[in-house]
Computed example of a mutant assay.
Amino acid sequence: MRRARRSLPAAILAVTLTVVVAGCGLISSSGNLRNGTLPGGDTPLAGADITVTSKAFTEQVVLGKITATYLAAAGADVTDMTGAPGAASSRQAQLRGETDVQWEYTGTGWVVYHERTESLSDPHELWTRVHDIELADNNLVWLPPSTLNNTYAFAASQGTAQRLGVSSLSDVAKLPVAERTFCIDDEFFSRSDGFLPMLKAYGIPFDTANGIPQGNVTRMDSGVIYTSTEAGKPCNFGMVFSTDGRIPNLNLKVLDDDRKYFLPYSGSVVIRKSVLDEHPAIEKLMAPISSKLNDDVMRELNGRVDIDGEDPADVAFDWLVEAGLVEPT
């Protein structure tokens, strides 16, 4: 059976870094892929050469390692280019045909890559629209998405949620003014799909005595928001990313976006059409991975890396084994 290629050695990394600075090429993330086999030993991708990439933040690296490990277990000769620096580099590499497979988010495809402003709250509709545009414009296939949704959300500590009796953003809108206190970062405050439009969607006027006075909003670094929310000061409600590992670690309660304000950022495997045409088994192989991934799973996996300090390759392999998708060799 073909094995996964190791991540690039140091000498090649030095050369690659020079290329990155020049504006093209990618650097793979640290850590080697762990070898496994599919249950039953099938190798539907024997003879396939596939390059997997990802962006550099934790969730993307974990998803990339899951994909690279699984495709290698299915017999592919995989080049691991996960952890590409900068959000644009992995995208551009795939558009240039230098890489084959990566995970993306439907909201990113809609807003960032195609600059669409129409708000679509239905995850399937958004995926369909992005899928059709990407296939027509870029010959990229967005496979059916998972239910993991890495979007903005608001959370409270369990104690705060119980004290105030809130489980949704509509509940927050009904609270006394003094209890409507928020921690957010500067970007979210100024985004066209961020804080101020959210307040409007929930019927809460900003900078008014009976709505949200400016003193009720504290702007801070996004990393500090989680601990401030857990402490319940200076805010009852903090902006979070819905799949962040700090949510379970700090036992935060994510509030339901019951008016469906936030755009879905559903995770989807994106593959070059020519590669999928040559190796159609990839779509069937990736389906069970997408079906098993959700917000709770990603919070746990992200937390194992960011909080427990585990290697993303180990986290990915362990999850594949636990999910019954890969057997150790």
Rank of each mutant, 00 (worst) to 15 (best):
A178C: 01
P264Y: 08
M198R: 07
M81Q: 14
S190A: 13
G165V: 13
K292S: 14
L199N: 03
G223V: 03
G97P: 13
P234M: 07
V141N: 01
L164R: 06
N149W: 01
E59Q: 07
T181C: 09
E230Q: 15
V321Y: 04
S28M: 00
A88Q: 13
G97N: 13
R91Y: 15
L120K: 05
S192Q: 11
D308M: 12
D122V: 02
M81D: 01
T181A: 05
G267Q: 10
G97C: 07
A46Q: 11
A84P: 02
F189Q: 10
G40R: 12
K233R: 15
G36L: 11
F57G: 06
N294R: 06
V315G: 02
A323Y: 03
G40Y: 10
S54I: 05
A136F: 00
K233P: 00
S29D: 13
G41D: 10
P85R: 05
D186E: 13
T117S: 10
S190F: 06
D296S: 12
A73M: 06
G36S: 10
A14V: 07
L255C: 08
A4I: 02
W319A: 09
V297G: 06
I204T: 07
T151D: 05
V326H: 10
Q162I: 01
R96W: 02
R219F: 02
R272E: 07
V172S: 14
F182L: 02
V62H: 09
I27G: 04
G41R: 09
I12T: 12
E118D: 15
P328N: 03
L140S: 03
D193N: 15
L293C: 04
V217W: 08
M1V: 05
P85F: 10
G223K: 15
P288L: 11
P144M: 04
H114S: 12
K253F: 04
G165M: 12
M286A: 03
L164N: 06
N294M: 04
L175I: 11
N236D: 11
A76M: 08
M220E: 11
A173Y: 10
I66R: 01
T51R: 14
S168R: 04
M298V: 12
E300G: 03
S167A: 13
L38F: 06
D186C: 00
M198Y: 03
L33H: 05
R116S: 10
K233W: 06
V62E: 11
G211N: 09
A46S: 13
E327L: 09
F57C: 01
V321G: 00
A178R: 13
Y70H: 09
S170Q: 09
F188D: 03
L164P: 05
G23P: 05
G238D: 12
T147N: 12
V52F: 09
E104Y: 08
E283I: 00
V224A: 15
V305S: 05
T99D: 05
Y265H: 15
G75L: 05
A72K: 02
Q162F: 00
G309Y: 08
P264N: 08
R304S: 02
P39W: 07
L196E: 11
S190E: 12
L263N: 05
I66Y: 01
S290G: 11
P328Y: 08
V326R: 03
S121Y: 00
V20T: 09
